[in-house]
Amino acid sequence: MIISSRKKNEELLQALEGKGKVFLVGCGACATACRSGGEEEVFAMQEWLQSTGRDVTGWVVIDEACHIMRAGRDLRQHRAQVEEADALLVLACGAGVQSMSSSTDQRVIGALDSLFLGNIRRFGQYEEKCSLCGDCILNETAGICPVTNCAKGLLNGPCGGLEEGRCEVDREIDCAWHLIFERLKRQKRPGVFARTVPAKNWGKVRKPGRHKIKS
């Protein structure tokens, strides 16, 4: 899921400058799961906004804020409250915020910072394991992604900063290449070490991304 975290009050106050009436939007999917934009957080935001002297005209938690049509439909159901507001404050990832901004010309303000596509270890502890590079090498790297887990995204083995299996960028974390090496050894196969991996095709990461799955 998409891991996100609430922006600092200071930054929110700046974005909300002059906006006395606010409509709140949360997201029932990722932002609920990582407790940045679920019902509870929407209520907490409402209280905080009121404490700054603002009115909350209404709120909605959309099932999946990234679902453009659904987001638009849910907003229409709250049309009066939305229209009464000076701005919509959206507690969802950047994709969710943009479902809103493509559904209304009202001022839309994002309340979260979107961090990464994360696996959950336990609540509050998330690990980025895939950065959606469009050209997956996992089958050769014993299921450990060097594009994401190596601080430099190297494809042909560790850099000179490897030290006792730890990463130069953070001695608390394992060097991804060390993990790959160890697991391939246990699997008794050379995997990615058998060849020189050519430069990555970043052309596969099309920006802006548009994708239709052919059936």
Partner: peptide, 16 residues
């Protein structure tokens, strides 16, 4: 990096 550990892992990059 001759002193990096594990040696074998560092060395495979060197061979490449």
């Amino acid at each position: 990096s001759p002193e990096a550990e594990p040696f074998e892992l560092m060395f495979q990059k060197c061979s490449k």
